[in-house]
Simulated scan of single mutants.
Amino acid sequence: MSEIAYVRGDATAPSVKGVKVIAHVCNDGGGWGNGFVLALSRRRPEPEAAYRAWHRGRASNGFGLGALQTVRVERDVWVADMIGRHGVRRAGNAVPVRYDAIDAALARLADRALDLGASVHMPRIGCGPAGGEWSRVEPLVTGRLAARGVTVTVYDHGEG
């Protein structure tokens, strides 16, 4: 079983060799505009366009909580949109994160990463605007990805 590697840096620009998947959590409401996706969109327009098209066709394309879409953005770089957040805003004390949906999407991501022979790179998914707790997400990442031999790097943004 692999361990999760934690580094300081920018998850939108992994610098390791080989095929890479940049994974992040999206909402099920079609909104793209806060958190990690802003940094992602500054580097590449394709993920936002693909997510919006996926959402528009949601009646027939599997879009919904727990779903996964991968978008190729470079020869050896993919972006994985994981639907793990219900809505875009907190409702009272309820946070948008859906741990069961993140778990389901991570299982799909593991299959995709293994098919591609890719490493996975991510921020602390589900823990920004989605309102999740890393202490609940980390075991999902470990169990679904690292336990299957997928190399995972989690990026904490910052200097150094």
Rank of each mutant, 00 (worst) to 15 (best):
I102D: 07
K20I: 01
I4Q: 13
A118C: 06
E74V: 15
L68N: 05
V21A: 01
A11E: 03
D10L: 04
R89G: 10
Y51D: 06
G126V: 05
S2M: 15
R112Q: 09
V25N: 12
E159K: 14
R75H: 13
R52L: 11
D111G: 08
M122A: 14
G31I: 15
A5K: 15
D81R: 12
A101S: 15
S41F: 15
P129A: 12
L145V: 02
G66E: 08
N34Y: 10
V95W: 01
S135P: 11
R89V: 06
R136C: 11
R8I: 15
R52K: 14
V97N: 04
A67P: 13
G132L: 06
V141E: 00
V16N: 15
H55P: 12
E138V: 02
A50W: 01
L145D: 05
G132P: 09
W54N: 04
V79F: 02
S15H: 09
D156W: 09
G64K: 02
C26S: 11
N27S: 14
G158N: 04
A94C: 14
G132M: 13
V141Y: 00
R144A: 00
I125M: 14
R144H: 02
A147H: 11
R58N: 04
V79W: 02
A80F: 02
W134P: 03
R72T: 12
G143S: 07
A105L: 13
D81T: 10
A39E: 07
V19M: 04
K17W: 10
A107Y: 09
H24C: 07
M1N: 12
S41Y: 13
L106R: 03
